[in-house]
Amino acid sequence: MKDMLSPWQALWELLRWAKRPFAALFPPVLSEHADGVDSFYMFLVGMSTFFSLLIAGLIVFFAVRYARGRKADRTRPPESNLVLEIVWSTVPLVLSVVIFFWGARLYLRLFTEPLGGYGEVVYVVGKQWMWKVQHPQGPMEIGALHAPMGIPIRLVMTSQDVIHDFSIPALRIKRDVVPGRYTSLWFQATRTGEFPIYCSEYCGTLHSQMLGKLVIQSPAAYAAWLAQGAAAGTAIQAGERLFTSLGCGGCHGAEGGAIRAPQLAGIFGRPVPLQSDGFATADEAYLRESILFPGRKVVAGYAPVMPTFAGQINEEQMVELIAYLRSLRLP
């Protein structure tokens, strides 16, 4: 097995080596993924340079060789050449297949939960023109995202208004942040430092000022930072306060009010049986929908009496509520 991989490893090393003199043309490399993307990019740059030079070289060569007025063998210029044409159709085809799979592999990794799961989930809300980042067990920050090194972090993101895009060049990742839905990203940083975050989807006047910084700390430093920030209140606590003030507890309370409503402890991640047959997984999108449009997916065995909270809760409050619901464990 190890021997089988070695040509790939050789290619990898070659691409890394080829990149070295051009380091200034690359953003900092903050993850294994970033390193993989760079190697892929180097491969494509090499391939493109080769073909561009080939075409340019041939054009110049022919233009000189067959310049008008210059003696050259021009007898019976070919009108087609099957072998040649098959070759130059197959070569791009084969290269395309390679590039496709290589690119797909890097892409699917971004959608696949890492072995061992995510270390932490952080909520990001974009709004014209700032990023609000909520750590369930820690503070809310504006325009910054603190995260520990070496631990897979999942970002769950939504927008209060228009489409934005959360983009971190050092990690070579970005994702649109879309109103009305949650999109996500994950990363695992390999070193500490500060790195820029950009909004990459045009979102109006101050699009170019919708910036942030990613602060990667050692796990210990991060834990200290988190604990210090938590003193001023966490997202979970804010969510709990909302749960009370919006009167959710009146129906969903532990004692059970006048109306029969499902218990919410331990709900997150659970399959929920629906009135309309089938199940829904209680993820962020489901919880959000249950709160804003309770009539759309009614839990089996319950009357559809929950009022809608659309218009009463903004997206930041929504992620606080979700953080709170998520923190509720079965006793």
């Binding site: 494509l44 493109s48 690119g103 592999r105 892409y107 970005k174 990459s200 989807e201």
Partner: peptide, 15 residues
């Protein structure tokens, strides 16, 4: 070809 390659496009798109 760079941009049609999924994993690379994530980095390059909107730049």
């Amino acid at each position: 070809l760079f941009l049609a390659a999924l994993g690379l496009d994530v980095h390059l798109t909107d730049t």
